[in-house]
Design a binder for these strands. Sequence first.
RNA 1: GCCGUCGUAGCUUAAAGGCAGAGCACUCGGCUGUUAACCGAGCGGUUGGCGGUUCGAAUCCGCCCGACGGCGCCA
Length: 437
Amino acid sequence: MKRSLGNEGFVPIKEILEGKHTDVEVNIRGWIHRTRDIGNMAFLNVRDPSGVVQATFVKDEFDEDKFKAIKDLLVESSLKVKGKVKEDERAPGGYEIAAADAEIVHASEDFPIHKDQSVEHLLDNRHLWMRSTEMRDILNVRSTVFGAIHDYFRTEGYKEFQSPILTPLACEGGATLFPVDYFDEEVYLTQSWQLYAEAAIFGLGDIYTIAPSFRAEKSRTPRHLTEYWHAEVEGLWHELDDIIALGEGLVLHVVDKVLEQNEEELERLDVDLDYLKRLEAPFPIITYDEAVSKLKKEGMNVEYGEDFGVPEEKKLTSLFEKPVFVTHYPKEIKAFYMKRDEKDDSKVLGYDLMVPHVGELIGGSVRETDVDSMIRRLKEGGEDPSIYEWFLDTRRYGSVPHAGYGLGVERVIMWLCNLDHIRDAIPFPSTPNRCRP
RNA sequence: GCCGUCGUAGCUUAAAGGCAGAGCACUCGGCUGUUAACCGAGCGGUUGGCGGUUCGAAUCCGCCCGACGGCGCCA
């Protein structure tokens, strides 16, 4: 027997707007979106998670106290309404409920969010702003994105593996770690699942995760969070081509799923649906060297050997119709765990996948398998290799070729939803200046 | 870490050295089809904090606090 979800007797407002209950008496429940009182009639727009519908209350049909109590309700009061659905062109959405009865669940206090809203005020009241159509739409897309990432990797045969959040290890450089007091010992919030994943593949094989990562970088930009969700994958015997195909496949699968399940939301968010619908394999692949000469040809002043900044990224992504893979970066500007290219020792076997407006979506690489060169790179980076002892063991006992990548889930959501700022891609964002609510 | 902008009523804002004002919200009253209704009245201020200049400071100066925007770094 199917378990009841507690919705018997109540219809989702969306169904009313779809004409499924016209001329039938229904019960709805939700919150007051807006009210208007014109003396002998009151109009209450009622919202639930599926939509907003207008309910009309005629004074003569209620006793005086009840009518007053209903018309005096403030925005965001919760209530149940019973009444007959009528098609009426005067109603927003074309349908309304002629209320026969209503039960006040909770009469709201004066709601702090009105029509005039600053960014700061909405962030301070994020717990209330989540009720807005805009936040609901984004969070619906977000839910699809998370589901699609799980689908994709599982369908491709990758197992889900979890790494610790508390860790003594740095992964991307010690300066950007959040320290945690672990019974008088200093440990950190994880920056990445990767190092633990590289130990796990020896037993499990191909694996993935979606987990929070933490960066203590004081990056004041529209594309950085200090706490973000990181989709990472590590594949045994994988080469650069494999993780390029795996990155492309994941992004396309996520785009397909969101187009399938959230077209309505994307339209309300003013997303260019045609751009998303046009995306298909293969994405262009260029090397770092090619990227530099393209940028120079476009008149940009790029220093060879430097990583790309925001203006370079903007220019580069604007040259392509699709997301673009940039491969073979100089080793100096990439992490210690990336494998050198045998054909050109100055480059690493890694890539960034870049999209317009957001920049890097994915960073991936083939991993260095030789313990000595890894120790050398750590020392060059000013790190103490002794902290990495257990990790170095993965290169001492049957070291094997492998590769993987990390994808910033909020960056994908920002890209898909055409958001101005990444903080709107996560329900409760943490940025350098804000970790509340 | 660097550069910049801004803090005035619950919210959004006006007042560029001379009486702190408005719109929205809220409260009260009116209105038989409203569309973020409309009409009338009312409530609401230590102008972010501390100090300075001045007869007089929201306004000028200094320090502090907070937020936002951009760069760098990253996913």
